[in-house]
Design a protein around this nucleic acid. Structure first.
Lengths: 80, 80
DNA sequence: TACCATTTGTCCGTATGTATG
DNA sequence: CCATACATACGGACAAATGGT
């Protein structure tokens, strides 16, 4: 999944992985991505790392976040 | 604001700047100073740098920190 | 109304690695 | 060698929003 010893930062690897899930339809539009806590446990990273991954996905225009609810895949994806 | 090329370390410049804000009343007693994250973004420095600046202010007796909440200006300022 | 669980938001504390002067 | 500075990554604690009981 993610490689802590690789040259790519963990939070970038995580973001790339989730981007793949969105682009291949595993996570459809307007459906939530895993919570920050779930990502931590699932991939064995700290919360700060999962937060930075989600932040990157927001910057890439792939997801939007609602405080107290969750983070969701956007309707129309930006070009890869 | 802060000069990365100047002879004074960035974190000292940042601390001096905030000390000024406290002494001139811009930041009143028991009010929070900008967070480390805010300082980073505001002045374009790394977190370690903003953290060292706040640490310096603590050593100078100008602020006190509450873990998980924030850093605040003290009630009675030490002599300049 | 009150309470509670979940989730995101915002804080700080610490450590390691890299690079520069 | 050491201080400065940046980036990454871990952890803990509290605040705010949401939704359900």
């Amino acid at each position: 999944m993610v490689d802590p010893d690789g040259p790519t930062p963990l939070y970038v690897q995580l973001a790339d992985l989730i981007e793949g899930l969105i682009r291949d339809g595993t996570i459809p539009a307007n459906r939530p991505i895993p919570s920050e806590t779930t990502l931590q446990q699932q991939y064995g990273v700290a919360r700060g790392t999962s937060r930075k991954a989600v932040e990157l996905l927001r910057e890439r225009g792939l997801v939007f976040t609602v405080h107290g609810k969750g983070t969701y895949a956007v309707e129309t994806l930006p070009p890869a």
